[in-house]
């Protein structure tokens, strides 16, 4: 009976693992196959990887999309971490009843669905287009700005600051550091783990973001990886091998980040719940 039960457990877990992994195996294998073979359901590696890569990098704007996505994700991650940690630190270290009230109000913004603010944001940036062109629709600023400040990261940093030894702040003051100096020279280096976890989340969110870039980026040379994949997938005569190659390349950065920094990854997710 006991043995039967454990066979059942292993079978169930194996099926779950197989179902989870299979689409990954399929896309990696399909990357090396011709479009026709992908539709025929070929599950063996082929010899068309170079051909697919050539099509992707020559006739599709893959390089541009990679560059755009990388620039956007790096700037977004940097600003998100900077602004989020400054605020999380400020709310916790300089805690007053007034700031706690502000904090609670800011948290309410986590309940705001993006679809609800998308249209006003689009109109705001639309109006800026004529007066301040570098802030208007179809610019880097427009795609980045609304995503860098989120209550989630303020919350995450504040939760983690609760575990930061506050004596270090006093020690810094005694050493004659300015308040900002304490933040940059003592807090930032001690909180590396939190920053790493937050960076992973911010980078992935930005790299995978779809709806807002879809709304605000219009010219083809501005498009990001998700927009490119979506466009390729929506074509009438899709080249499946090429699409699979694009999906693999688009997934690679986040997959690498996940495997290299698995510990921080999970910690970052948990950081938002503990405390």
């Amino acid at each position: 009976m006991k043995k039967l039960k454990s066979v059942g457990i292993y079978t169930f877990l194996s099926i779950a693992a197989l179902v989870s992994i299979f689409p990954f195996l399929w896309m990696v294998v399909s990357m090396t196959n011709k479009s026709v073979d992908v539709t025929k359901g070929r599950l063996l590696p082929g010899r068309h990887l170079i051909e697919n890569l050539n099509v992707l990098f020559e006739s599709v704007n893959m390089v541009t999309a990679l560059v755009n996505s990388t620039i956007i994700a790096l700037i977004t991650t940097f600003l998100t971490l900077l602004i989020g940690s400054l605020a999380g630190y400020g709310f916790e270290i300089y805690r007053t009843p007034g700031k706690d009230k502000v904090f609670n109000i800011l948290l309410l913004s986590m309940m705001i669905p993006f679809a609800a603010i998308m249209i006003p944001l689009y109109r705001i940036f639309g109006r800026l287009s004529s007066t301040v062109p570098f802030l208007g629709i179809d610019t880097l600023a427009a795609v980045i700005l609304p995503t860098v400040i989120t209550a989630f990261f303020i919350f995450l940093f504040r939760q983690n600051t609760k575990m930061f030894a506050k004596e270090l702040v006093e020690a810094g003051r005694i050493d004659g550091l300015s308040e900002l100096g304490i933040f940059f020279r003592i807090y930032v280096p001690t909180m590396k783990t939190t920053y790493a976890a937050a960076a992973i989340i911010a980078f992935m969110n930005s790299w995978n973001n779809y709806l807002w870039p879809l709304v605000v980026l219009q010219s083809p040379e501005k498009q990001t990886i998700p927009l490119l994949i979506s466009n390729l997938g929506a074509g009438y005569t899709p080249n499946f091998g090429v699409i699979m190659t694009a999906i693999v390349i688009g997934t690679l950065p986040t997959a690498v980040v996940f495997f290299v920094m698995q510990k921080y990854f999970v910690e970052g997710m948990m950081g938002s719940v503990k405390g």
């Binding site: 400020g90 300089y94 705001i112 006003p120 609304p146 860098v148 400040i149 308040e179």
Partner: peptide, 28 residues
Amino acid sequence: KKNYIGWLFILIATAGICIFYFYPMVQA
């Protein structure tokens, strides 16, 4: 003075959330 500096730490985030979340909500 520290309380006042504390407000500076949270200023950008607070302003940002007002501009990019609360103001659009009112507009919507």
